[in-house]
């Protein structure tokens, strides 16, 4: 176990380091000049030169990278060119919203996806199964931003039940939760469609196995067979997909936050890349990568908890 943890941690650090170098290189190859973006196309050359000097844009790329990595080791991720505040402040003020959105999104995805998948499997070949498969096929095909717009039109503009977007802050928890209902729904509907299909086929596969027949022959109720015997044995592929979907939900927030104008990290990524805000992009990409790597790690742990036969994987 310790060897496993150590190997995982080293792998994690190597991944992050490689990603940071790639982001730095890519951002430097991309055409653009933050000094023109900030001061506008009608600015004078000497004002732009003064700003470039102030931002340290004239240093060679390797020197800027070394500066950055030395700062990052000590917890200083640099200062945003555009907002002129430390990148860590920028991220911390937006992190709670994106984390809540991602957590709600994942929770709703898992609940809805597994529930629908199990219902479909239990009604295999009947109308319920067909209906769920048809709807989930639609869910996979529909882009999240389009679905978001439809939800807004119905629930915010027509019915006026929920706000069309924006985030009032956690000071008012009720209003905050209300404003997250539509974004969470939009995130979860699309992702749960995939999960429902995987759950269904995984459950169907287990249903054909001998022990299920035995359980049925012993007179257990259908619900008990499903809950006690089928689902636990069908979980490994489901957990794999859930792990991948966490990444999907986190990146999905980029689109959702733009459509619902939520002040989260997704919108910040979008803006920073367009603005060539190097250090902000750098920190955000590293953060997103860390979330994905951590999720993969948790998925590996979950495998062992579900199926003790897989313990060998950890050593």
């Amino acid at each position: 176990m310790q060897v496993f943890l150590l190997r995982r941690t080293l792998g994690f650090l190597a991944t992050i380091l490689a990603i940071s170098v790639i982001v730095f290189l890519v951002m430097n190859v991309l055409p653009g000049d933050p000094s023109v973006t900030i001061l506008g196309i009608d600015s004078t050359e000497d004002a732009r030169a003064a700003l470039r000097a102030q931002l340290g844009l004239d240093d060679p790329i390797w020197l800027r990278y070394l500066h950055w990595i030395w700062g990052a080791v000590r917890g200083d991720f640099g200062t945003s060119y555009f907002f002129r505040v430390p990148v860590s402040d920028l991220i911390l003020e937006r992190l709670p919203l994106t984390l809540s959105l991602a957590a709600f999104g994942t929770l709703a995805t898992v609940t809805l996806g597994i529930l629908l998948g199990v219902i479909a499997a239990a009604n295999h070949g009947r109308a319920g199964d067909w209906l769920i498969m048809l709807v989930s096929q639609l869910g996979i095909a529909v882009p999240a931003f389009w679905l978001s717009m439809l939800l807004v039109l119905l629930f915010a503009v027509k019915l006026r039940w929920l706000p069309p977007g924006g985030f009032p802050g956690w000071d008012d928890p009720v209003a905050a939760l209300r404003s997250l209902i539509l974004p969470t729904t939009a995130l979860a509907l699309v992702q749960s469609a995939v999960l429902a299909r995987v759950t269904r086929s995984s459950a169907l596969e287990v249903m054909r196995l001998d022990f299920v027949r035995t359980a049925r022959a012993s007179g257990m109720t259908r619900g008990r067979i499903l809950g006690r015997h089928i689902l636990p044995n069908a979980l490994v592929p489901i957990v794999t997909i859930v792990g991948m979907q966490v990444a999907g939900v986190v990146t999905g927030t980029i689109v959702i936050e733009n459509v619902f104008y939520l002040p989260g990290l997704g919108r910040l990524v979008f803006q920073s890349i367009a603005n060539r805000d190097l250090f902000t992009v750098q920190a955000l990409v590293v953060l997103f990568a860390a979330i994905v790597v951590t999720t993969n790690f948790l998925v590996d742990i979950a495998y062992v908890l579900i199926d003790p036969r897989l313990k060998g994987r950890l050593s």
């Binding site: 915010a156 977007g165 104008y261």
Partner: peptide, 18 residues
């Protein structure tokens, strides 16, 4: 001042009297 960059979202916000 509320920052809404997407035109469809801006329309929805006006229509919902936000």
């Amino acid at each position: 001042f509320r920052f809404i960059s997407d035109p469809a979202a801006a329309t929805a916000a006006l229509m919902a009297e936000e």
